[in-house]
Amino acid sequence: MKINIFLIITVFTLLLYACNNQQKIDSKEINIANSTTPNNSIPLTVKMVYIPGGEYKPFYGSDSTLVKVPAFLLDERAVTNQEFLAFIKLNPAWRKSVIKRIYADTSYLNNWVNDTTLPKDAKLDAPITNISWFAAKAFAKSIGKRLPTLDEWEYVAMADKTTANARSKPTYSNEILDLYLQKNRQYNAVKQSAPNYWGVYNMFDLIWEWTDDFNSVLTTGDSRSGQYDDKNLFCAASATSATDIMNYAAFMRFALRGSVKANFAIANLGFRCAKDTLILNK
């Protein structure tokens, strides 16, 4: 009983602290995404990292196409089990027993003991997985954030520990590949490895991550055809339209994105949140 009271007080303190934090971030900038009322009952201990905008060459597309990425804020790490549990408690519609199949398939939180109990042995600070794109989006919206776009995510993914764009380094893709080949990484806690150039953690070593427009680059799942589909989007899995044929790690990410639907829940697929910013320089 004593422990319970202690826990409740701790959680409340944390929440209050988190609210303050949230306000701090908000007060620093005029935020477009904040037109929806944030629900600050989820413990928001995650730091957001300011990513100054820039141009980058997407993995798929013609060589001359540079894509502009405006400045944005990105969570330094993935959303955790603890945070998603808090979301679930506040938003009963997203519990696994009641969720509609169009929003999440049968794998949704299928490792949870019940609607509001994390899997046995799950670390509170391990990334949440087995959640659909809809659920990830709903979580982000509930705290006044959003999912990063594919371009934003890949822009940050160009960095290694020391440079913003490490793509041309021969070791860059191979080091990521080494990580990608390891199974069951998603059960590890966040922020246990070194951050990248921007101060962002775990871009590669724990999970695949949902992006807002994960399906905007449609792949056929067949890595050899070089056609455009009827929506005039790239058959992204095609080696003929990739800008860096040796970047096997990027091929894998795009293959994964091409194989999923928005209601899929997968054991090694989670997410982190992003936010618009009007600060152009920092």
């Binding site: 794998s107 990608y180 080949l181 390891q182 199974k183 069951n184 792949t219 056929t220 799942g221 067949d222 055809s225 894998m252 293959a255 994964l256 091409g258 194989s259 999923v260 899929f264 997968i266 054991a267 090694n268 697929l269």
Partner: peptide, 29 residues
């Protein structure tokens, strides 16, 4: 427990990609 999506192209199949696109399977699917 797979990390990656997989699919199958059977050379015995007459049809697009030998089935590759139709069988693109995410982990667990």
């Amino acid at each position: 427990s797979s990390v990656l999506p997989h699919n199958i192209d059977l050379h015995a199949v007459t049809g697009p990609g030998g089935g590759a696109a139709a069988t693109s399977s995410a982990p667990g699917k």
